[in-house]
């Protein structure tokens, strides 16, 4: 069982078994032998989301336009297509903006710019806002459609995540393209589900 698991893993991951921690302290930490500080495919903090976003549009331009009163932009796509990532990346560029989930049940904060996830419509008032929506809403000055992620882009996203949590010099785990292709096919482009499987792969290798 163990050998079949490690055999399967070696087909999924390149260079996993050649990793050796250079920092002796890393040996005491579960991800140390992978030369990682943590599992890159778990939940992230807001600044990690912002740093790892590979936006589909020029977010600096979107941020500049959101500073104009009444500008409205929507990011449209199914679950796991990157709506939250885009909104959090905008928040990192707009300290005066407030990010909120419309399905959290909490009242919306007052802010000059609202970044609303899981929105179903525009908030009251004429302020600027960016929405994360599943279905397109009429009346937006700008619409960014987030479709299925192509394989080369997913590869880039995965590499960025792994690099973000690199512990030190030396090799880090690398996912085979064939594995990523199979995951994309299985989950129809839902990155949350793709990352859930990659999370388990890393756990298998780390423990």
């Amino acid at each position: 069982m163990v050998s079949s698991q490690s055999g399967r893993r070696s087909r999924r991951w390149k260079a996993m078994h050649d990793l050796s921690p250079r920092d002796p302290h890393a040996g005491a930490l579960p991800y140390g032998k992978l030369n990682l500080r943590r599992n890159p495919f778990g939940e992230l903090e807001a600044d990690d989301w912002a740093a790892l976003a590979l936006p589909a549009v020029d977010l600096d331009d979107v941020a500049r336009r959101l500073r104009e009163p009444g500008f409205r932009v929507q990011f449209v796509g199914p679950s796991g297509s990157g709506k939250t990532t885009h909104l959090l990346a905008l928040q990192a560029r707009l300290p005066e903006a407030r990010y909120a989930r419309c399905d959290s049940g909490r009242p919306l904060a007052k802010a000059a710019i609202l970044l609303l996830d899981e929105a179903r419509g525009f908030p009251r008032g004429g302020g600027s806002c960016a929405l994360g929506v599943h279905e397109k809403i009429a009346g937006c000055a700008m619409t960014v459609e987030l479709g299925a992620v192509p394989l080369d882009r997913l590869d880039l996203i995965v590499r960025s995540r792994v690099e973000r949590f690199r512990r030190g010099d030396g090799p880090v785990p690398e996912v085979c393209l064939s594995r990523l292709g199979a995951l994309l096919e299985r989950h129809g482009g839902d990155l949350r589900l793709v990352f859930a499987e990659l999370y388990e792969d890393i756990q298998d290798a780390a423990m």
Binding site: R38, N39, G42, E43, L44, E45, Y199
Partner: peptide, 10 residues
């Protein structure tokens, strides 16, 4: 300071 990481929110 301490913080969590893994499958759940941080």
């Amino acid at each position: 300071a301490w913080r969590t990481h893994g499958k759940g929110n941080v």
